[in-house]
């Protein structure tokens, strides 16, 4: 333990308004703690005042409408993984949830936390990009919505202002019928950080790709929706040619190499496209 916990303050607001007051006064939101508590232990948690969100039941749960599915930002991955609704309608998210850490971390880590932590390797992110998720962001000023693919802007930079919290994630219902894939490539079979991941889904009509969404993890400074790749494949006859990969900008780090990430990203796409044919 490399932090002196007596130097940190933590409060647990009883409701959203109280939480937003704290957050607007510079208190750092703390959800499942699977990222922030790790930073704390390493002595790297800069914020000294934290607002624990565990009492905010209004930010939990899965709501299913005809057109949309709404996920509370505090929904834990264990729930996403085991929810029949998510499994049926958002299968890529269910698969990703099942591969985030071990059972004990899936019981704690939240969807909103995974997005707000903004790791390029965040495992829920590619699925949400593929599903055209929209974030509902709240503050004392009110509520606004941001298409998730516009949320990340750079390494750990996102469209989330001081005083704001991610409240809910809205997803279209009905994407479960698309043909999709989620593939996480990590440093070992399970309980590991992603080196490269792909979420993709397509609607195939009469031997052509009618609609397609592609998103990668850990190949850019943030989870990457690949619009150019999608454009190249939209309308393509199957079997489709590989699209251009110039949107990807992977790096070398101690987990992997840029070369490997790019090569595997191509291979994963090749496998996905082959599965459509």
């Amino acid at each position: 333990m490399r932090a002196n916990v007596s130097r940190y303050d933590l409060r647990a607001p009883d409701g959203l308004t109280e939480a937003l007051h704290l957050v607007s006064n510079g208190w750092k939101p703390l959800a499942g703690g699977t990222d922030l508590m790790v930073l704390l232990e390493a002595g790297k948690l800069a914020e000294r005042r934290l607002a624990g969100l565990w009492k905010l039941d209004e930010l939990r749960g899965i709501e299913v409408g005809d057109e949309t599915i709404t996920l509370g930002a505090l929904t834990i991955f264990a729930e996403l993984r085991h929810s029949p609704v998510v499994g049926l309608n958002l299968p890529l998210l269910a698969s990703a949830a099942a591969e985030i850490g071990g059972v004990a971390n899936q019981n704690r880590a939240t969807l909103g936390g995974n997005l707000a932590n903004a790791s390029p390797a965040a495992d829920a992110a590619p699925a949400l990009l593929v599903y055209d998720a929209e974030l509902e962001i709240v503050s004392l000023e009110g509520t606004r919505r941001v298409p998730y693919h516009q949320f990340h802007r750079g390494y750990k930079e996102m469209d989330l202002r001081a005083g704001e919290l991610i409240a809910r994630i809205h997803l279209p219902n009905g994407r479960g019928r698309w043909q999709g894939c989620w593939r996480k490539v990590a440093t070992r079979a399970a309980q590991a950080i992603t080196k490269v991941s792909l979420a993709a889904a397509a609607r195939v009509e009469e031997g052509r790709i009618a609609e397609i969404r592609i998103a990668y993890g850990a190949v850019a400074p943030y989870p990457l929706r690949c619009h150019r790749m999608e454009a190249a494949l939209r309308g393509a006859a199957l079997p489709a040619q590989l699209p251009p990969f110039d949107e990807l900008a992977p790096i070398d780090d101690f987990r992997s190499t840029a070369r490997y990430r790019l090569k595997v990203a191509r291979n994963l796409m090749e496998t996905f496209l082959a599965s459509l044919a």
Partner: peptide
């Protein structure tokens, strides 16, 4: 998290 030893699935 970054020195990787085999877990049960490996």
């Amino acid at each position: 998290t970054n020195y990787i030893m085999p877990a049960p699935g490996d």
